[in-house]
Simulated assay, not measured.
Amino acid sequence: MTIFSFKNMMALPLLCFVSTSIYAENTALVTSNGILSGDFGAVSKYIYRGGVENDDVAFQAALEYAHKSGVSVGYWGSTLDYDATDENRTHGFEHDLYIAYGDEINADLSYNLQATAYIYQHGGTVYADAHKRKTTAFDVLGELAYKEFTFAASVLLADASFGNAGDMYLSAAYNHPLPKNFILNASVGGSVYNSGRDDEIVQTTKDFAFNEARIGLSKSLAESSVVASLDYILGGEDRLGEDFDNHVVFGLNYHF
């Protein structure tokens, strides 16, 4: 989230990134103090917590250095089909920078703590009457992994153009190896929204909303570092109670 970044949690949507990381160690650069790894690829759509970040093909890339101490730093980026500060612009880019610490409690149980900054192309501020908000956002994430299950919670630390400080996202994921090197991926996620900081830019009508559920398959191609994935995403609701669409997302990713 290997340490993973969960974003808008975040070189593919959550399920693709978690499942395909299994193959990353095959080509990662191993040093005396840690591992440098990365990936780049594309998905047919970029869907984040049920919402559409790019309704066209999104190109994505990631780079991470994991130190033997358990500390890791990384970058993740994706193309977008919008610009948060210019409604007339039909493209943009998201940059995520994170630092994390993870360790094993025992052979079956591990944890990860992560802080992430989300930075958007052109940065800037969104204005509405007397209110304004930065597009840059910061959150903290906690994960607990038990065997093939991962449970996570992230909290937004400050008001941003898309959310309120205190908004929390809760998720659970399951990844299971299948015959022929296929991997079954499934996840579900929902948000607890803080309506106490609403203004003209961000409004809330739901204290809690189921955002999305995913199920899919991923597979390395011909024992290479290229991984193909296919996910079905069942859309839930946003903070206003408006329904998200369902999506089928295909991904192709190369790990190094």
Rank of each mutant, 00 (worst) to 15 (best):
D243F: 06
A115E: 04
L63T: 15
E64I: 12
N175L: 13
V57K: 10
A145L: 08
S78G: 14
E87Y: 12
F149G: 01
Y193R: 00
L141T: 06
V202N: 04
K219S: 11
L170I: 06
T85L: 00
N164A: 08
S171P: 01
L184F: 13
V43G: 07
Y169F: 12
G74F: 09
D129R: 03
N175M: 11
F59R: 03
T2S: 09
V249P: 10
L12W: 11
T79F: 13
G235T: 09
E223I: 01
F4R: 10
K7W: 13
E87F: 06
L240V: 06
A165P: 00
Y169I: 03
F210R: 02
L97C: 04
Y48I: 04
G163S: 06
K180E: 09
I22M: 11
Y98D: 11
A153E: 01
A115T: 07
A84S: 10
A172H: 03
V73L: 12
A11T: 13
N54A: 15
S37C: 08
L29I: 12
L230M: 15
S5M: 15
S78R: 04
G123P: 14
S229W: 04
D83Y: 08
T205H: 06
F162W: 00
H247S: 10
S218C: 12
Y254Q: 14
T116E: 04
G196L: 07
E143H: 09
T85Y: 03
D243N: 07
S44N: 05
V249S: 09
A11K: 06
G251S: 10
K219I: 04
G123M: 06
H255L: 13
A130H: 08
H131S: 13
V126C: 03
M168D: 02
A128G: 08
L156S: 03
L234A: 13
M168G: 05
A117Y: 07
I105D: 06
K132Y: 06
I47P: 02
G41W: 09
I105G: 06
A209H: 02
V18E: 05
F6Q: 01
Y254V: 07
D159S: 01
F40Q: 07
N185H: 04
G142A: 10
A209D: 04
L109A: 15
E237W: 05
F40W: 15
G77Y: 05
E148L: 15
N175R: 02
L157G: 00
Q203W: 01
V71W: 15
Y48E: 08
F40T: 13
D139C: 00
G216L: 07
A209K: 00
E237Y: 01
L80Q: 12
D39W: 02
G236M: 06
L29P: 05
A24T: 12
S69C: 09
N112P: 01
V57W: 13
L36G: 12
V155I: 12
S225I: 01
S154C: 02
G241E: 07
G41T: 10
K147C: 02
L109D: 09
N33A: 15
D56E: 15
Y127E: 08
V249A: 11
I3M: 14
G77V: 04
V248C: 10
G166E: 00
D55S: 14
V227T: 08
A160F: 02
L252H: 13
A158W: 00
